[in-house]
Amino acid sequence: MRGEHGPLVDTTLLFVISFAGLAIITFPYVVPGQLTIAAAAWDSTTLTFMLFGIGIVFQVMIGYNLYQYHLFRGTVVPVKH
């Protein structure tokens, strides 16, 4: 059903999510006027641990995706209309 409308829907969703991100940056209060996102965050040691953990997992994900692209290169055949 998505067919030709898929890229339009995906682009619209990307725009809405990006706009929501800008709104969160502009208005950083979780509880308006009382609690900011930074104040609601965990302590610095936990955030540091998570930063290193995400740094390792992110590299594994990128490596796996590169491996997939290398493994399946040239196997895609374009559909002719």
Rank of each mutant, 00 (worst) to 15 (best):
Q68V: 08
Y67N: 04
I62S: 06
G53C: 11
F58R: 06
D43E: 07
Q34T: 11
M50A: 08
I54P: 00
D43K: 03
F15C: 08
L47R: 15
Y64H: 08
T46V: 10
G74E: 03
G33S: 02
Q59I: 12
M61H: 08
G3Y: 05
L8Y: 07
V9L: 12
W42E: 12
I56R: 02
T75S: 09
P7N: 05
F52A: 10
G3R: 09
Q59G: 07
I56L: 15
Q34Y: 09
R73W: 10
R73H: 14
P32I: 01
V30P: 00
G21P: 01
P28T: 01
I54E: 05
D10I: 04
W42L: 11
T48W: 04
V16W: 01
I17A: 13
Y67V: 03
I56M: 09
G21N: 15
I24T: 12
P28M: 01
F15T: 10
V9Q: 08
M61W: 06
M1L: 12
T11Y: 07
Q59L: 15
N65G: 04
T48S: 07
G55Q: 02
L13E: 09
V16G: 00
I37Y: 11
I54H: 06
L35H: 01
I25K: 14
S44H: 06
N65V: 10
L13M: 12
F27Y: 14
W42S: 15
A23V: 14
T12M: 07
L51A: 14
I17T: 11
P78K: 05
G55V: 01
T11E: 15
R73I: 03
D10H: 09
E4R: 13
L14G: 12
L66D: 05
L8I: 10
I56V: 15
Y64L: 11
F72E: 08
V31Y: 06
G74L: 02
F27I: 05
R73P: 00
L51F: 14
A20V: 14
V9D: 06
P28C: 02
T75V: 08
V79H: 11
P78M: 02
Y64N: 04
L13D: 07
P32V: 02
V16L: 13
M1E: 15
T26C: 07
L47D: 04
S18H: 07
Y67P: 00
R2H: 06
H70N: 09
A23M: 13
M1Q: 14
H70E: 05
V77Q: 12
L51M: 13
G74T: 02
L13F: 05
G21M: 11
Q68I: 06
G53N: 13
T45H: 13
F52T: 11
V77E: 10
A38W: 06
R2P: 06
V77S: 06
F49D: 09
H5N: 11
V79I: 13
L66S: 03
L13S: 06
V60M: 12
G3P: 00
P32L: 03
I54M: 10
G74A: 03
M50W: 07
Q59F: 13
V76S: 12
Q34M: 08
P7R: 02
A40N: 05
Y29C: 02
L35C: 01
T26H: 12
I54A: 08
G33N: 03
A20F: 09
F19R: 09
G55T: 01
L35A: 01
